[in-house]
Design a protein around this nucleic acid. Structure first.
Lengths: 322, 322
DNA sequence: TTGTAGGCGTTATCAT
DNA sequence: ATGATAACGCCTACAA
């Protein structure tokens, strides 16, 4: 109800003065600042976001873009952590957020997307789960028209940053940990989707590790799918000393296959999702702090929107047994 | 980039005329309408949401309020379904959405909350997971200042609706289904949180059912907690013919306890979450369509914001084995 | 240091 | 049926 005009009247100053106080402009006497702050408090004034977004070129509004379909899936946990972290950090930084799910723009062109962003006065976006086929999002990130932060996709330019864990090192580490106790001569690696940005890094790391250790390696495309991993394991699992999976969900598929086949082999996963605690049987995995990653991503977007240049940011991870 | 002014110029009409076309006002000649639509298409014009929210009292902006903490929990699935459904329906209806997590306003007063809603030009809200202690949210719903739709909380007044499944009937049905194959003489019911709106309805239904069937009933407060249910089951589970749980997570706790005790007893849950498929062992449960519930809630909010009166809406459910 | 005034992109009320 | 024009609440040169 109370507007900046009311505050001005109450404080006995001009509207612009109030605005300056609100936005921490320099050259405001301590006296007027206090008068204004008292008035703000008294009237419980909160600036209207629509009005400020409208009047200023700089919009503190960002979009969180998440790869969430309406399908049933047991790993909503990841997206939810991403979202929680992003909203929390955004609130901390005073950014306004709109949430966009992939399903909402699946038939939009690049222009449609840009028009939408403009209509919402969006100044930057954080994108989760972008794959190499997501043309619209990738074009957005490469265009440099908007500030972007990609999680798990290494597109970096002056206005685009990437936030993720060190994929290669993490994959290397978790398998190394398995090898500490299980000395195997052959390994089956069930990789993630070929169009994923992380897949190559992880796979290369596995190749390097196996070469170093003299382990014979076979790579199968598990598509990040539990069922696919189960199938692969049923077909070929028997022939290898251990099975490494590029995601926990695939590890779960693999474990269920092994159980069904009634054989035991070391298995490891990647992600550290909670579901593993229920069905993982103490499997080694890479624990990612999705919440923290998301906070870091929003932090970085904030920085980009304030002039810093795009870069590649690595977040810590942990190898754990779940 | 293109504004309504540009469209007006392109179409050779006044700004106000363009606005009328855009908002489907009456009394527009078919001829000018076409001219305007052509210009809109040509310039790829999309109206600025900030400006329209600012200029009109009616804001097609709603808030989705979700009880999501940053904690690790295996049932993010539910909140994610709620969110997906709400965003999808909102997009369909042309509503703008802001997402609010409980953690964001945990130390806000009612006034703070209202100020925030005003600052965001919010016209109505959908609230999920409200409990009887959530004073701020409840006051908001009872105040009638904003249009509200509560999911799983029966507060109904001219500007507030409730959307949920028939709690009593669902609880009654799922247990009846168990009783079809297992004829038990005694039952342990592990109920949900006492401050939950659904708890009493479910518990009363169980009491009624047991009375009808001549089954001796004991109710324990499981607080919707997996661990609490496990504990209760370990302590007292042995003494009953079956154990009914007011949520799937509690059913999972109960099952793990029974497994640990190496005893078998019929168990049933409530919700129908995906996790049950992994650890439920074919347990009977109530399958709620969270996505559909959420869509219905946003639909109802839209109706409220367009003049309809608050009411109690029941969504279908299913009894299934997971 | 503070105030005046124009503008941001719409909507809505009047005239015409 | 159409067009001026005043809000909406805030930001920001520019003046004072």
């Amino acid at each position: 109800m109370a507007s900046i005009k009311d505050v001005a009247k109450e404080a006995g100053v001009a509207i612009s003065t109030v605005s300056k106080v609100l936005n921490n402009y320099p050259n405001i006497s301590i006296d007027t600042r206090e008068k204004v702050e008292r008035a703000v408090k008294k009237l419980k004034f909160v600036p209207n976001k629509m009005a400020s977004a409208l009047s200023s070129k700089y919009a503190g509004r960002i979009a969180i873009v998440i790869d969430q379909t309406a399908q049933e899936t047991p790993i909503d946990e990841v997206d939810m952590r991403y979202l929680s972290g992003a909203l929390a950090k955004a609130k901390e930084l005073g950014l306004d957020v709109i949430t966009i799910f992939y399903s909402m723009f699946k038939d939009w062109t690049h222009d449609d997307f840009c028009a939408y962003l403009r209509s919402e006065s969006i100044g930057g976006l954080v994108m989760f789960g972008v794959s190499k086929d997501d043309n619209v999002l990738i074009k957005l990130a490469k265009n440099r028209e908007y500030k972007c932060v990609l999680v798990d996709a290494d597109i970096v330019n002056p206005s685009t940053s990437c936030v993720w864990i060190d994929q290669a090192q993490a994959q290397y580490d978790v398998i190394s940990e398995v090898l500490k106790t299980d000395n195997v001569g052959s390994m089956l690696y069930i990789s993630g989707k070929q169009n994923g940005f992380v897949t190559d890094y992880r796979t290369e790391a596995v190749k390097r590790l196996c070469e170093e250790r003299g382990i014979s390696l076979t790579v199968a495309d598990g598509e990040f799918s539990e069922d696919r991993a189960r199938e692969i394991t049923l077909n070929e699992g028997r022939n290898y000393g251990m099975i490494a999976c590029a995601s926990d969900m695939m590890a779960i598929g693999t474990i269920s296959a092994l159980t069904q086949m009634d054989v035991f082999k070391p298995v490891c996963g990647f992600d550290g999702i909670t579901l593993m605690k229920y069905v993982g049987n103490h499997v080694l995995t890479v624990k990612q702090d999705f919440y923290g990653i998301s906070m870091a991503a929003v932090d970085e977007l904030y920085a980009l929107m304030h002039g810093s240049k795009g870069r590649d940011i690595k977040i810590p991870y942990e190898v754990v047994r779940l």
